[in-house]
């Protein structure tokens, strides 16, 4: 797909999609969205990037092997469930930490990290599949 228009536009779209995916993930707790959808959008962005430029380029722009994202995401979700051990609560108990940073009111919670983990897992695994399909899996 070496058309000029697509190659020029694609990075822009990809950037928008990535930002949008993070946005969707973060607000998922209150509005439609969440880690799954965010991750899927991010993976779609990666697909567009790889089609518009090349797999190698898309892989380079990630810096890290996509499966590392996936592993890290699952690990993060697991950790966010384990935190409740310290609180003498069962696995995956939601713990909330309300931070007042000056004007901003930030709510940090284990479900948030869990959702971020989902995002990373979905993005990583699907990204790996999409890139791998073009290169026989050799995407190191």
């Amino acid at each position: 797909m070496n058309t000029l228009i697509f190659r020029t536009i694609a990075p822009l779209i990809v950037a928008v999609m990535v930002v949008f995916s993070i946005f969707i993930t973060l607000r998922g707790h209150n509005e439609p969205g969440g880690g799954f959808i965010g991750g899927l959008i991010a993976a779609a962005a990666l697909a567009i990037l790889s089609i518009a430029t090349s797999v190698q380029q898309a892989r380079r722009s990630l810096h890290i092997h996509p499966l590392v994202f996936a592993g890290f995401g699952v690990f993060m979700a697991g950790v966010s469930g384990m935190v409740s051990m310290a609180a003498h609560a069962p696995f995956l108990t939601g713990l909330w930490l309300e931070l007042e940073l000056g004007e901003a009111h930030v709510a940090l919670s284990t479900p948030l990290f869990f959702d971020l983990g989902v995002y990373l897992a979905v993005f990583g695994a699907l990204g790996a599949v999409i890139l791998g399909l073009e290169t026989d899996g050799e995407i190191d």
């Binding site: 590392v68 996936a70 690990f75 697991g78």
Partner: peptide, 30 residues
């Protein structure tokens, strides 16, 4: 449930969580 969960109770979930996190860690640290 308001009764606190003792750490010993975690043996119920750890057989699932440990391999899960172990596998995830292997990927993350590939």
């Amino acid at each position: 449930i308001t009764t606190p969960t003792s750490w010993a109770d975690w043996i119920l979930i750890l057989p699932v969580v440990l391999p899960l996190m172990g596998a995830a860690l292997m990927l993350a640290l590939r």
